[in-house]
Amino acid sequence: MAAVLHAISLGLVLFATWLLLSGFFEPLLITFGVATCVIVVWIARRMDLVDHEGHPIHLGPRIFVYWLWLIGEIVKSNIDVAKRIIDPRLPIKPTLFWTKASQQSELGQVIYANSITLTPGTISVRVADGSVLVHALSAESAAGIAQGDMDRRVSALKCGGPD
């Protein structure tokens, strides 16, 4: 049942994307769009892609809130790293450390790891056993991760989904 729901919602999302991409609303192209969406959903199901990981509709609006916050973080860290790069003294002090990823689900861990990577200054190098190995450009950015603010926010997304 959940699978069918996922499939339908995926189909709808895809169709929306189609319309956005296409910009044509002639019957012919709409037909093609529908056909396309059906085919893609069918293949996706064959590929076993359509589940809560592959199509995380359950995250709902929370994800957008997180995105906004993340963008802010990205801007901040960007400016920080940019400063360091153009500073003639090149004030960097790379570190490599493990930090805990407290998310229950794999999806959550992925979002966390990617978020770390997205913010310049820190890069996730490895994800294993509920921890993330992070490479940081400077002590400050390392501290920012170690603080655990991002970890908490990602956990709050409850990516595990109702399974």
Binding site: C37, V40, I43, M47, L49, E53, P56
Partner: peptide, 8 residues
């Protein structure tokens, strides 16, 4: 996540 969109 990406695959359906690539095919689309």
């Amino acid at each position: 996540l990406l695959m359906p969109f690539i095919l689309l």
